[in-house]
Amino acid sequence: MARTSLSAVALQLSGSGAAVSEPAGPASATATPTFVLDVNGREHQLTVDARVTLLDALRDRLGLTGTKKGCDQGTCGACTVLVNGRRIDSCLTLAVMHEGDRVTTIEGLASGEQLHPIQAAFIKNDAFQCGYCTPGQLMSAVGMVNEGHAIDRNTVREQMSGNICRCGCYPHIVDAVLDWKGRS
């Protein structure tokens, strides 16, 4: 097993990828970090317990309760938001880990009173009943389209499987996604 010195490791690490800008924020360990979170294009300065997940920061600290907590374990997708345009489960990540990221929540999807076309397609196709999983479904659908995965019914089914809907609206969700895709 090859061994090299620690300084060589550091060298190898910094030389192995693209240069990264020095991130702002806590350089040393803290239990209550202060940082800036960019949500829906607005910057919020937060000083919170390091334990606060992105989901709880959005809901409890910023009052953005459109993002839902369904399991808090990464098993249902109700908390789906976009980070730098990619869909993630906001319950399994810490808020402080997202300093410098662009977070988009359901509150940032419509333009004022003008619904985003996927929102309109969900209403038209009755792609929800109780509505609790709906913000997560919508953010996941947008993320899926960003990924280039909204191809056909079967692909949409697979690619929307990270969002559980207990009311059982799945076929209508697929209809809504393809309806939107077809019109855009």
Binding site: S7, A29, A31, A50
Partner: peptide
């Protein structure tokens, strides 16, 4: 409760 630290380099993380 835990402390959080953002590593700036591999050596610092280790």
């Amino acid at each position: 409760p835990f402390r959080y630290e953002r590593a700036q380099s591999g050596a610092a993380a280790i």
